[in-house]
Nucleic acid binder design. Structure first.
Lengths: 242, 242
DNA sequence: CGAGACTTTGACCGTAGTCAATTTATGTGG
DNA sequence: CCACATAAATTGACTACGGTCAAAGTCTCG
């Protein structure tokens, strides 16, 4: 479904290089350009754009990141998660009063401006995909708002899990209804506007009720349709399904 | 400060027409074009874009509107308020799963695409102002997220009042520290993710503590600096002030 | 003056927060 | 491979912030 997913193909990128033997000189140069444009970050590190450059555009190749703000108080609010295939944009003076982008796992990031793809039309395809992704992201921000503003703890957790599942599925990172989440419960709490303890209890309850299975960083959603109903979750893309 | 405020000048628009006598034929035509592009809406009405048109861009000339979503459940979440001078954008199939724009008061709206302004450079100025406004709006969405995700009821109310005050001030709708809010407490509740009753109690408390004065649709913020501290409010524009 | 919308208040409840301690991974060096 | 150190998850006891229900009081406007 996602043109971006097709264009970038995150953690399977290495597959591309199995075909090295048949590459032309130009293609080899492209591959070099590609690798030059890949940056790596350690968990917890804040992604910043080079000073004086104004903005930095990128795409997540592998790993998870998030956009968040920290109050002088210490309280944190996570606005959104950045998954493999997601584009992002960092502005220079956006630390306080804005939003910071922070790596949640080891992260591979590609600078978007880098013309690693051949042909104008390929680049345009990517640009269109990025644009599309931007629109979806805007919608997800509204979802997030509804979650923390109007849903109960149970609903919030389910709603977020369903969103993550859908998004990961779009980039081929879901097997069945199971996927990996490299998130600690504190992260969950800060994203959903709840306390760590209450997140823990809510997860426990959902597990006990047989709605989800949690096992060493993997989640399985049982009966997604039903869960979507419980959490007022509306899958992305098609609107109008009450 | 705001180029947009200067270009549009909301509830003072009528002043322009006092100068009718000296207008050239071209200018008269511009004025006609201007009025043709003004739409009016009654409170509670949802703004929609003409079917098949995809999107509708506009600017609020007078009155308040909001962007919100309603759950099948009946619960409502307001994402943002649209004030005089604010640009907005409505997409076609955005009712459910997206965000609806609803008039909160009698509303005067100008279609943005309409070339009521003379000269390419004037239109470009407006376009730049709109762009700028879009960026600020994005930041405000993050503020809203922090409000409903991480602030207490007291902080939420203050934080929102401070934001509204700053925004209204930018378009000349604040006298001293007093301004009009045409919002019922239910609206406040739906914006801040609280119940109507609790909003009422919080306002009462803030009044009792001498932080705010509420009188028939007008609010006065006493010691804004101090309030900003209490609510972790960060005025727009200048970042970096912890 | 009456109808309806909005605000205010009281009583009570429940969801979620806080504090603190324990258990369970995870990981690292010997 | 084990011992220890650290981060993460889990649990209990208690608190409190905010929600719900219901009724009464105000305000507006035709």
């Amino acid at each position: 479904m996602s043109a971006l997913a097709q264009a970038v193909r995150p953690s399977t990128a290495s597959v591309t290089f199995n075909a090295f033997g048949g590459l032309q000189a130009l293609q080899v140069e492209q591959v070099r350009a590609f690798w030059r444009s890949v940056e790596r970050f350690e968990p917890g590190v804040q992604l910043e754009c080079a000073p004086g450059q104004g903005v930095k555009r990128g795409v997540i190749l592998s790993g998870w990141a998030c956009e968040m703000r920290i109050l002088p108080d210490g309280r944190r609010q996570i606005f959104s998660f950045l998954l493999p295939g997601d584009p992002f944009l960092i502005e220079e003076h956006a630390d306080l009063g804005g939003r910071g982008v922070v790596a949640l796992t080891r992260l591979e990031v590609m600078d978007w401006a880098n013309p690693f793809l051949a042909g104008a039309e390929a680049r345009e395809t990517l640009a269109r995909a990025m644009n599309e992704a931007g629109v979806q992201k805007q919608d997800r921000l509204m979802d997030q708002m509804v979650r923390i503003g109007r849903l109960t703890a149970r609903e919030r957790v389910l709603h977020l899990l369903l969103e993550l599942c859908d998004r990961l599925e779009a980039v081929g990172l879901v097997r069945g209804d199971t996927f990996r989440i490299p998130l600690t419960q504190v992260i969950f709490a800060d994203a959903l506007g709840l306390s760590l303890v209450h997140i823990n209890r809510t997860l426990k309850q959902l597990r006990r009720e047989g709605h989800i299975v949690l096992k060493s960083g993997s989640v399985t959603l049982l009966r997604r349709e039903k869960l979507a109903g419980l959490a007022f979750y509306h899958p992305p893309g098609m609107a109008g399904v009450a």
